[in-house]
Each structure stands twice: as C-alpha cells, then as structure tokens.
Design a protein around this nucleic acid. Structure first.
Length: 497
DNA sequence: CATCCACCGGAATGTAGGGCCT
DNA sequence: AGGCCCTACATTCCGGTGGATG
C-alpha cells in the first residue's frame, strides 16, 4: 500500500485539539526577557499532525472497560463473587495465567464493578488489592491490609461523628423535624460521641516495622471485624509471596473466616506460575483453590482485536496504516501472547512516528519499535548489573571488539583479572566467574554453550548477543568502570601468549 | 583406544548485610 | 542492644567429561 504519501491536501491542520495550550506556549516565549524569536523550540513539534488522541489508553496502568476474549473468565469471576452481594462468603479464587494475559486487568475490572454494585444496593462489600511483588513479606501484607482497614474505619467513624454533631445541633435547636431521633436529649448524643471518639483514639496505624507479626495480624483482624461486611482480598503475583515468605500468610488469611464475627473474608489470588501451589500446605491449597480460573495466552487474532479496540481510542482517525496492528499482534504473539507487550509495541511505534514527524504510523515504525524495546530492555538490564558482572561483560566485549569469536572462559577470566587490578576491585575466583557468565547467558546478554575442544579441554564458548557499541557505552557510564582508560593493553595482552 | 586438557558444575561451607523479634 | 535467622554472594574442594590427539 503506497497510498501513504498523501498529497498536501489539508496542509493547514491548525485545528490543534488544545488551542489554549498553544497560546500559553507563545506567551511564555514572548515574555522571555532574552527576546527569543517566537518560532521556538516546541513550535515545530506542535505543528505536526497529531497521531495520538489519548495515549494513556496504551499504558499498562490503564484498566479498560472492555476486555475482548475474556468474557468467559470475567463471567466466572462474577458468578463466584455475587455471593458477596448477598452477604455470603464467596469462594476463594485462584487465577492463573502468564504475563500479559489480562489477569490483573480482568480482576480489577470485576472488583470495580463489584464495589459499584455494592454501593448501589448498599451492601457493605470491599475489595483490597495488594501486589505481592512489592509487598512481599507476611508482615508487610498484613500491615498494609491492617492500615487500609484502619483508615477506612477511621473515615467511617468520622462520618458518624459528624452526623451525630449535626444531629446534636438540630436537637439543641429543638427542631421538630427530628422526632424520630433515638436520643431524647443532647446528653445521649454526647455520650455516643464520646465513645466514638475513644474508638477513634484507639485506631493507630501499624508501623512499617517493629511489631511482632501476630500483633499485626490481630490488629488487621480487629480492623476487618470492626463492622459487618464482606471483604475480598486480591493478592496479585501471589506466587512471589509464597516464594519469598512461605505460605503462612495464606494459611492465616484462609482460616480467618472461622474466627470472624461480623465480617467475611475471601481471597482472590493471581499467579503467573501454574505450579506454585505445589509448595503450599495441602490445607491452604484446597481452601485457596476452591475455584480456579485459567487465562490462556492470546493468539495473534485475539491480540489484533485487543489492539484494534484500544487503537480506536488511542490514535487519531486514520493515523495507522492497515498493516500496523497485525504486525504488532504477530510480534507479540511470538512472545507467548503477551498483550502488554503488544500494546507497548504499538505505543512505542506511535511515539517513534510522532517523533519523526510522519503523519502515519507504518510498518517500519513497528519494526523500529521492536528494536527499541529490545534495546531499552538490554540497556536497563546491563545498567543495573552488579559491578562484578559488568566487569565480566566488559571483558567479553573487549574480546569481541578485537575480532575474537568463540571466546572461552579462560580468556575472559584473564582479561577480567587485569580489569579488576586496573580499577582496584576484588578479583573473584574463576568458579564464580563461570556462574556470572551463566547469569549473563540467562539474561540473554551473551550466548554461552559448553563445547569440548577435545585434547584442548572443555569450555564455554561465549558470544555477545547484544549490540557491542551501545552496551559498551552503558558499561562505561558506570562510575567504577569509567576509570578504565587504556583499553589497548588488555587487548594486546591476549595476543602475547 | 587410552589419555588428558581445561574447564564445567554440584556440594559444602564461609561471610556480610538486613530484617525480625525478645 | 543483641541474638537469631534468612538471603545473597563467594570461596574451596573436587569429581566429572567430550573428544582431538598421539
């Protein structure tokens, strides 16, 4: 399709959606004491045809109102959770699925609906979301939950206090409209206010550290049980929690119901790992997995629907050429059907198109976006590598740059040693360095395979699988590594043997 | 066909740092 | 404050090995 090079038809696309903003920019520029010309830095960029209409929609944080191809899962969740609206305890739910399969989005969507409906019918029902990758110990989970409920209870009490204050005022004025009030006089109200204030006094947030865990648990327990309601606790990335701090938390949460007087608790676990229940206590396993919902990866067609859906909102009309979305979908489908990845790709492609001032997003932008995302990933990984790993990687790069292929561990280790001496770092043993190389392999930064060279031993053959120049630049940005000045000697040393 | 290189990689053990708890 | 325990990172020790080479 080469109809893209559209003739200069409606060149003056001056209908910038946010006129006021444009004016502001001009004003600022005019007020500049230096007397800069008003044809400023941003003018060019603003004048281009806008590509995005609403970019937020493409961000991972956005929770869509419609989730194509997930109605089965959503319905099942809803069927289970209606119980909450009838004041019963919903079954615990376990949700499985790989990253970017819409688990969190669906769960959040359902919980929003649930809370809204509960307000409509005035059934007390709440959902609390916890991301266990961030909050990854029993203590922190309990503390966070406790604090959320304490906060809510406080708000609840405060509301009742202000209601009472109003009532008191009304009674004092002898308003006749209040015959139905249960209080004869202000003193009755006063004592009620007093007890509530005392209760408010007691509600102190749990400190982030310091208390014994069971005290936090008690605090949380009391806060939940403070009044009648159904509470759904949503534990995202629950596998991380189990991995890092065992199943005690889940055990405690799942047996809570038998001790609660006023409220009911239901757990909704979201996991990336299908097999994580293997590590659980059988009791926990059976109680948690009362209902299981699986989110299979999206296939390319489904991804296309999802992208189309969002693209309609996110982009200006006709900003995308026809092949953009299928291509994004195809790329992402290769990465185990990760919708997040697909959206990321689409957004990045759009940004690239915007930056290059083209009027449409086309296939080339998608391909560039693919590269950019991969490069960003690598840069981020390399940047956050520990110093020792950086040194190892740098050694590999030095060898590679010198045209050495099929690098082996011995060579890397030699160069690595010299680098360490140069910047005065601890020299690790070769055993450790092989592990570091294996880690780099895992991260996809290098490629290492064990080969036997017969008489000449057995070693890893290592090759770089990321762009040399960029990676080197990232490494040299590290304050320790930047001390390395003369690179030649290291390279030279290799040929001396 | 045995040899033997040059490293692999498992296991045990050591050490530092940090959070938790009394 | 001080003991305890967990985790991450390292070292030490060492048995293991694929296959070119003599």
């Amino acid at each position: 399709m080469t109809g893209n090079d559209s003739p200069p038809e409606d060149r003056p696309s001056e209908e910038a959606p946010d006129r006021s903003f444009a004016v502001d920019v001009e004003e600022v520029l005019e007020d500049d004491p230096d007397g800069e010309p008003s044809q400023g830095l941003f003018d060019d960029l603003l004048s281009g045809e806008p590509i995005f209409e609403n970019k937020e929609v493409l961000r991972p944080s956005y929770t869509p109102h419609e989730l194509p191809h997930r109605s089965d899962q959503i319905n099942k969740m809803a069927t289970i959770l209606v119980a909450a609206l009838r004041g019963e305890t919903p079954s615990n739910i376990l949700i499985y699925g790989k990253t970017g399969t819409g688990k969190t989005a669906s769960a959040k969507f359902v919980s929003q609906e649930l809370e809204q409906t509960s307000k409509k019918y005035e059934v007390p029902c709440e959902v609390e979301y916890i991301n266990c990758e961030v909050t990854d110990t029993q203590y922190r989970v309990l503390a966070q939950l406790a604090n959320k409920f304490i906060e809510q209870n406080e708000a609840h009490v405060e509301r009742r206090l202000s209601d009472l204050a109003d009532l008191r005022e009304a009674v004092e004025e002898g308003s006749t409209a209040l015959e139905a009030t249960p209080f004869e006089s202000t003193t009755g109200i006063d004592s009620r206010i007093e007890t509530l204030e005392d209760e408010l006094e007691e509600m102190e947030p749990v400190p982030m550290t310091g208390w014994p865990t069971d005290r936090v648990y008690k605090e949380f327990f009391d806060a939940v049980d403070y009044r009648e309601r159904v509470v759904v606790i949503m534990l995202d990335e629950i596998d991380k929690l189990v991995e890092k701090s065992g199943d005690d938390t889940l055990y405690n949460l799942s047996r809570m119901n038998s001790e609660l007087d006023n409220s009911r608790v239901s757990i909704m676990g979201i996991s990336n790992d299908l097999k994580f229940t293997d590590f659980l206590d059988p009791r926990v396993k059976s109680s948690l997995g009362e209902e299981e919902i699986v989110f299979p990866p999206y296939d390319a067609n489904q991804l296309r629907d999802i992208l189309q859906h969002r693209a309609d909102i996110a982009f200006e009309e006709r900003a995308l050429t026809d092949d953009v979305i299928p291509l994004c979908a195809a790329f992402a489908a290769q990465e185990h059907g990760d919708a997040r990845r697909a959206l990321d790709l689409l957004r990045t492609a759009g940004e690239l198109a915007e930056r290059s001032q083209s009027e449409h997003v086309d296939e080339s932008h998608v391909r560039k976006a693919q590269d950019k995302i991969e490069l960003d990933r690598v840069v981020e990984v390399v940047r956050t590598l520990p110093t020792q790993s950086k040194l190892v990687l740098f050694s590999i790069i030095l060898l590679e740059k010198n045209g050495v292929h099929n690098i082996n561990t011995g060579e890397v280790f030699n160069i690595y040693k010299r680098l360490c001496e140069e910047i005065d770092a601890d020299v690790l043993t070769q055993r450790r360095v092989t592990d570091l190389i294996s880690e780099l392999d895992m991260l996809g930064i290098v490629n290492a395979i064990v080969v036997s060279k017969g008489r000449y031993g057995r070693t890893k053959e290592i090759s770089l699988s990321v762009p040399t120049e960029e990676t080197e630049a990232v490494l040299l940005a590290d304050s320790r590594l930047s001390e390395i000045e003369e690179i030649q000697p290291f390279v030279q040393a290799r040929f001396d043997n």
